[in-house]
């Protein structure tokens, strides 16, 4: 995917996910009851989408949104168009069902290659992670397969030099932020809370309502070998799904009757340090110096 000097092009990978707060587990069979569970765009992906649109507004060009999912994932793409994305691609095929992260990144990277052949890509964006899969691996997986520079947990894009094909950005790491310079094309996984999602205009909404969503099957996405897709292409297998045991004990209640706030606070600290002696030690250590 070498960059050609054409207009700036970002592709944002978004996933349609169930609104996790509403997931229910069948009490007997321990399977997921999907009935009536609303779906949303993975909230983390919206930060990636906004960042891509921000760059487009600054440097011109196009933002394409890409998703792999069931046909109804088209709703998520249409919503992204309404937010201001220019083009939408859905890859959907029965053979994708049951994909783990390796198989997902395989299918997406094939689709990205096909998109890139028509319209070279400068940046592939993904969210930090999904709220259902929650692995944060699909981004790195895509980067590896396409040989893109992998820039995860990006907190801010400081500068983009299109002629020199370089990008300067901030990446969250343990205990601080790395300021990095890398080369385009690259893959960025965007950190949450890094920007504020815009509202599309009425024109965006009208365009989104009518825009065609490009839909590709596995073959159309350029996947010749279905062995690498879906369940077959997934080295991991889920052997068991179960609901976590609910915490048997509710909170231990601090008696407040007949106590002043100061006495209550002392009682809280007593109980706290009794439950977790480590905590007291750790807290004390922090302030010793």
């Amino acid at each position: 995917m070498t960059r050609l000097a054409r207009e700036f092009h970002s592709v944002v990978c978004i996933k349609q996910v169930p609104d996790s707060a509403q997931i229910r587990v069948h009490p007997v069979t321990n399977t997921i009851m999907r009935q009536g569970v609303p779906t949303i765009i993975n909230p983390y992906d919206l930060f990636a989408l906004e960042e891509a649109m921000r760059l487009r507004d600054e440097y011109g060009g196009t933002v394409t949104v890409l998703t792999m999912g069931p046909p109804m994932a088209e709703d998520a793409l249409r919503r992204a168009l309404g937010l201001g994305a220019n083009r939408a691609v859905l890859i959907t095929d029965r053979r994708f069902a049951g994909s783990d992260t390796l198989a997902t990144s395989f299918a997406l990277s094939k689709a990205l290659t096909r998109i890139g052949e028509e319209h070279p890509i400068d940046i592939v964006f993904t969210g930090k992670q999904t709220i259902d899969g929650d692995t944060a691996q699909v981004g790195p997986g895509i980067a590896r397969r396409l040989g893109l520079n992998q820039l995860t947990y990006v907190a801010a894009i400081d500068a983009l030099d299109r002629d020199g094909a370089t990008i300067t950005l901030r990446r969250r790491s343990e205990g601080g932020v790395q300021v990095l310079r890398s080369r385009l094309p690259c893959l960025i996984t965007m950190l949450e809370d890094t920007n504020t999602l815009r509202r599309g205009t009425i024109q965006d909404m009208l365009r989104a309502a009518r825009a065609p969503v490009t839909t590709w099957s596995a073959e159309e996405a350029g996947i010749a070998d279905p062995m690498q897709c879906g369940l077959r292409g997934s080295p991991t297998v889920v052997k068991r799904v179960f609901a976590p045991r609910p915490r048997a004990d509710k909170a231990e209640m601090v008696v407040v009757e007949g106590k002043t706030p100061a006495q209550t606070a002392d009682a809280v600290l007593d109980l706290l340090f009794a439950q977790s002696p480590n905590l007291e030690a750790a807290l004390s250590a922090r302030f010793k110096s």
Binding site: R79, G82, R199, I202, M205, L206, A208, A209, R210
Partner: peptide, 16 residues
């Protein structure tokens, strides 16, 4: 129902 409406050629915009 909204899907049938859209299939009938209506332009639907949401979140508006």
């Amino acid at each position: 129902f909204a899907k049938q409406v859209r299939a009938a050629g209506v332009t639907l915009i949401t979140e508006t």
